[in-house]
C-alpha cells in the first residue's frame, strides 16, 4: 500500500518578518494581496503569510522575487522598528499527500492532529521526533512540513517511517 506520499518541495522564497503587526499589515497586503493571518493561521494564495508568533510572520514567495519583496518591505517599513530577512535557505518544505496524513503526523508529534483540534489551513509550530518543525494542513488529506535544512534528512526519514507505518495500519482520527 502506498496511499500516502512524501515529497521534498521545490525551493521557496522565505522572508522572516518581525515587528508590530499593525505596521506590517499594510505592506504585507500590498505584497501578497492578503490580510494578515489570524494566530496559528495562513493567508494568501501564491505569495502567502504564515503566522509564526505574535510578532513574527513568514512570507512565502517565488525564490526569484525575494530581492524585490525585501526592497519593497524595507521602503514601506523604513520608519518602523522591524526585521525583514531572507531565510529562504534556512528551511526545507515537505509535502505530504493521502487520506491518512493526520494519522501519520500524529505518530511523530505531540500536537493534537484531530480534525476538531487542527483545522485545515492552520499552521502549528511543534516538535517532530527530536526536532522543531511546523505543520501546515493544506487540505484534509494534504499537509506541508517546514523544518530547518540542517535536520532535513532526519525529518525526511522520520516522515517516511511515519507514512510507512500509517500506510500499514490506518488509524482514524
Amino acid at each position: 500500500m502506498s496511499d500516502l506520499s512524501l515529497e521534498r518541495a521545490a525551493p521557496r522564497g522565505m522572508i522572516a518578518l518581525r515587528g508590530d503587526f499593525d505596521s506590517l499589515a499594510g505592506p504585507c497586503r500590498e505584497i501578497t494581496g492578503a490580510d494578515l493571518p489570524a494566530p496559528l493561521g495562513a493567508a494568501g494564495e501564491g505569495r502567502a503569510l504564515l503566522w509564526m508568533s505574535p510578532d513574527e510572520l513568514l512570507l512565502l514567495c517565488d525564490p526569484g522575487d525575494v530581492g524585490e519583496v525585501l526592497a519593497r518591505l524595507g521602503e514601506a517599513l523604513a520608519a518602523q522598528h522591524h526585521l525583514a530577512s531572507d531565510v529562504s535557505d534556512a528551511r526545507v518544505v515537505f509535502t505530504l499527500r493521502g487520506p491518512g496524513v493526520r494519522d501519520a503526523l500524529a505518530r511523530i508529534t505531540p500536537c493534537d492532529m484531530r480534525p476538531g483540534r487542527f483545522h485545515v489551513g492552520q499552521v502549528r509550530r511543534t516538535r517532530l521526533g527530536q526536532v522543531a518543525a511546523a505543520i501546515r494542513l493544506t487540505g484534509d488529506a494534504a499537509a506541508e512540513v517546514y523544518c530547518f535544512r540542517s535536520v532535513g534528512d532526519y525529518v525526511e526519514r522520520l516522515l517516511a517511517t511515519a507514512l510507512e507505518s500509517a500506510n500499514r495500519e490506518r488509524v482514524a482520527l
Binding site: 494566530p39 496559528l40 508568533s53 505574535p54 505531540p110 500536537c111 493534537d112 502549528r124 511543534t126 516538535r127
Partner: peptide
C-alpha cells in the same frame, strides 16, 4: 497565553 496552543511539556 501568547498563541493559545495547548502545548505538550516536550514542546516547552
Amino acid at each position: 497565553p501568547a498563541c493559545g496552543v495547548a502545548a505538550d511539556e516536550t514542546e516547552l
